[in-house]
């Protein structure tokens, strides 16, 4: 939270304020256009008209400066890991990460005997929701976003405990 954090004594009204803030955060999860492998196709499909991620308030942004959510869709190689970290760092807070697909979760089919693939994106950036699948269907990704929304609703902004 911003400058108001830890400045105000607890107040019964703050639970409602927090709920409102979380509600507005969860319904405007703009995700960054970031796809490195075949999961990107499913990500595009999720954003397109049939599955229509817009109805959850999620629209894609072409720059990390306007993004709240990073959907790591695809295999992250060691060479790419550097860029992923930098893109994550360049996103404004509050920011969330969904690891989409086996590769982003654990390295997937490249887990054994791969010299070049990062074994899970959580080795470099904090991940909020893991979506399994190779690649996950759009329904699975939407489930992941709903899970993330539930997680955001649990956040405390002005309430201390």
């Amino acid at each position: 939270m911003g400058i108001l954090e830890d400045r105000l004594p607890d107040n019964i009204l703050f639970t409602t304020v927090d709920k409102f803030l979380n509600w507005s955060k969860k319904n405007s999860l703009w995700y960054m256009l970031f796809a490195t492998a075949c999961c990107g196709i499913e990500l595009m499909q999720t954003g397109a008209s049939r599955y229509d991620l817009d109805r959850f308030g999620s629209v894609f942004r072409a720059t990390p400066r306007q993004s709240d959510l990073m959907i790591v869709a695809g295999t992250i190689t060691h060479k790419m890991a550097d860029r992923v970290k930098r893109l994550y760092d360049q996103m404004p807070s509050p920011k969330y990460v969904i690891a989409m697909g086996s590769c982003a979760n654990t390295g997937g089919p490249f887990y054994k005997d791969s010299y070049s693939v990062l074994k899970g994106v959580d080795k470099i950036i904090p991940v909020d929701v893991y979506v399994p699948g190779c690649p996950p269907k759009p329904e699975a990704l939407i489930e992941g976003i709903i899970k993330l929304q539930q997680k955001i609703m649990q956040e405390k902004n002005l309430v201390k405990k």
Binding site: L4, R86, D89, P94
Partner: peptide
């Protein structure tokens, strides 16, 4: 927005955005 937004600037965040490149 100024009151409630988190402000956590750091060197990487303030650097130019060049599609993830340095």
């Amino acid at each position: 927005a100024r009151l409630i937004r988190p402000a956590e600037p750091n060197v990487v965040k303030m650097s130019n955005y060049e599609c993830g490149e340095e």
